[in-house]
Simulated scan of single mutants.
Amino acid sequence: MTVEAQIRAAIRDCVNRTSRKPFNWGGIQGYQQLSAIGEILRSLPCRAIDTDYLSILSVWVDQALINNLSVASDLEQAHQWLRQIADCLHYPKYSKTCKDDVTNVTDTSNSPLTSFQVRREMEELLEQFQPDPQHHPAQFALKKKLQRLWHKYGTNLLYCYDIPGLPPDNLKIESLFSNLRRHQRRISGRKSTAELRDFGQYQVLFIAENEKQLLEQIQQVPITEYKIQRRRLAMAEAPRQQKRRLHRNPVNTIQALVNQHQQLLTVLEFQALNTN
């Protein structure tokens, strides 16, 4: 029964495969996984007593594969077209970002391509991509969406081929921000990363592997500018600190505000008397 339960769990997992944009499509991967399971089940001998249930299960799996064959084929062809479009745009093949390259967000592979060449290749590919909306709805939806996006944003996507150093996307910037958020969660132990709204810009500028590198970076900043930015940071943190004090000890916090107000009134009254 344990083996049968594991096989059922594997079949159930086929319909729950998640997708990850742009190229990992859970529907295609799930169908391929179910097809592999069906192939194994069909190879089992039908006369064995302990495989009767698996033989029946094999029939159900084959029926599910047949019922969804056209949809899976349509999705797979649409996925192939999407790959061709990505190759036409010469989408960069990103490797795992190392620590030394985390801030290098403009490093792109040198390519002799021009925007005119990419535009011509893309328009030729879109002309070749003519799916039938009746028999290939997934491909037709992909073509319709891509054509609308290309006509609307195509010109803005081509500047990176003519301007040296301009990346074609913001994936490395997003990776940098993700690292900052993950680091902040490890420090605070909380899911929220609201603190980065106040001092995240400093963490982006000062990324160092050790204290020596951090000190060298800080020493490049003039002391006057450092004090100005430090005061701005303190002013930005003040509302959150006040709210934290209010949540922890509301009585003392409100009493401190009232005392400050009374002291301010005393100073104003004293100044008014001296003026008169």
Score class of each variant (00 low, 15 high):
R240I: 06
R186Q: 08
L157H: 09
R248G: 03
L44F: 15
R182M: 05
R120Q: 12
Q117N: 07
V71A: 14
A208T: 04
E123P: 13
L180T: 02
V251T: 06
T106Y: 13
C46E: 15
T266S: 12
Q184E: 14
E76Q: 12
P239H: 09
E209S: 13
W81Q: 03
R245H: 13
L268M: 07
N110K: 11
R197Q: 09
T224R: 09
Q134M: 03
P133C: 01
W81S: 00
V61Q: 06
Q33M: 14
N274A: 04
Q134I: 12
R231I: 12
D169R: 02
Q201P: 01
A9H: 10
F140A: 15
Q134K: 07
E216L: 06
P133I: 01
L196C: 04
Y226H: 06
L180S: 05
V258L: 15
N179R: 14
A138L: 00
A5G: 10
A238R: 15
A36I: 01
Q130R: 15
P112Y: 07
A208R: 02
I85K: 08
L215C: 06
E76I: 05
K227N: 10
A141W: 02
S70E: 12
L69F: 14
V204K: 11
V61N: 11
H247F: 07
L54W: 07
Q260I: 05
Q128W: 12
M1E: 11
S43I: 00
V71E: 12
S58Y: 07
V118C: 02
K191R: 10
S95D: 05
H247R: 15
A194S: 09
T18L: 13
H183Q: 03
E121R: 15
A194Q: 08
N259S: 08
A194M: 04
G26H: 13
I163G: 00
P133Q: 01
L75F: 01
L196W: 04
